[in-house]
Simulated assay, not measured.
Amino acid sequence: MSMTVDNVMTREVAPVSAATSFKDVATALVSGGVGAAPVLDGDRHVIGMISEADLLHKEQFREQHFGESYRPPPRSLLRHRASRRKASGETAADLMTSPPITITAGKSAVDAARLMDAHDVNQLAVVDYNGRLVGIVSRRDLVRLFLRGDEQIAADVRDDILRRALWMDTSGVQVKVSEGIVTLYGRMDRRSETALAIRATGRVNGVVGVVGELSWERDDVTPASARRGARS
């Protein structure tokens, strides 16, 4: 139902060591067709990450901040210092961002997306419980989840949500999917159950949105006094 990092991550990674030269890091990124490379110690522990942006600091600093008269705004001073340090870097140890932002393979794809957003990064090193590299996951890997076909999404909703995840009678519920938008229609026993079905469907990978066209036999959400007032 909910994909994990293990389902979407890239296992063929081009790691580098702290002593790897600037040009060899660039070669690893270009030849590997990746946007970032993990930096490993001798035991394959991830000690940092180097992205394409880290390498580009050298050229950006040369173009924008070379003159001695340049004074960065106070709010960007720390970022400027980090850029200047990386611009003069010659090895992976100089270029990398450390400590790295990592995630384990068993975490959900949603957890990975939230972690990337919180730290404003495009890739995460995937590690085992000892901190050793097992892969890398990128925003592009997560976006691919939305490329799942409508038929596959509909099958997941029927099998994983309606038949397995929800401990209630869903025999009266039908599913239709178009361009990733799921429509649930039919009838359920309780109004609260329809809300659960809609929320659970929204967690299926590839779902863009959920439209609920469900009715119910019993309204267990609206207070009885309000229902009486509506009838009078």
Score class of each variant (00 low, 15 high):
V175G: 00
G35C: 10
T201Q: 02
G106A: 05
A112V: 06
V204T: 10
R148M: 11
D159V: 04
S76W: 09
D111R: 04
S76E: 10
L29N: 01
H45N: 08
S171A: 15
G202E: 06
A92W: 03
L142N: 10
S17I: 00
L214M: 12
L133G: 03
A26P: 05
K23W: 13
H80S: 10
S178V: 15
E217D: 14
A165G: 00
A87M: 10
D54S: 03
G32D: 11
V46F: 04
T201G: 05
A155E: 11
A82L: 09
E213D: 14
M1D: 08
H119T: 07
Y129T: 07
N130C: 02
S83K: 13
D117S: 07
V121K: 07
V211K: 03
V127P: 00
V121N: 04
F66V: 02
H80G: 03
D94H: 15
V175D: 01
I103R: 02
V127D: 09
Y185A: 07
L147P: 00
V25G: 10
D220N: 05
Q60K: 13
R228H: 02
S31A: 10
A93G: 05
A109Y: 08
F22K: 08
E68S: 11
F66R: 09
T20Y: 01
S31L: 13
R71A: 11
E151A: 08
L77E: 11
M49F: 09
K23C: 02
A105N: 02
F66E: 08
E179N: 13
N7Q: 14
A224G: 01
G172S: 05
D160C: 13
R227K: 15
R191M: 04
D159L: 06
H65N: 11
V39Q: 06
G106E: 13
Q123I: 01
E151Q: 08
T201F: 04
E217G: 09
E90I: 00
K107E: 14
G209A: 15
D189V: 12
V39S: 04
D94L: 02
I198E: 15
K107N: 11
G106K: 08
R228E: 12
T20Q: 10
M188P: 01
R84A: 03
T91Y: 09
P223R: 15
A113R: 08
P38V: 00
V211C: 05
D128W: 00
A53P: 05
R11A: 04
V175R: 03
S76H: 12
A230I: 01
Q152S: 12
E68C: 01
G149D: 15
L55H: 03
A53F: 09
V13I: 14
D111I: 04
H119S: 12
L142W: 06
R85E: 12
L214N: 05
R191W: 04
D159H: 09
T91I: 02
V137S: 09
D156E: 09
Y129R: 10
L142P: 06
P73N: 06
I161F: 05
N7W: 13
S31G: 13
R164Q: 14
R62S: 13
S98L: 05
G149M: 08
V173S: 04
A118W: 00
D43K: 13
L56M: 07
T97F: 13
R227G: 00
P38F: 00
D120F: 15
R163A: 14
A28Q: 09
A82C: 05
R231M: 13
R139I: 02
M96W: 03
V221Q: 11
V177L: 09
A197T: 14
G42Q: 08
I136F: 07
F61W: 08
L29E: 09
D41M: 10
V110C: 06
E213Q: 12
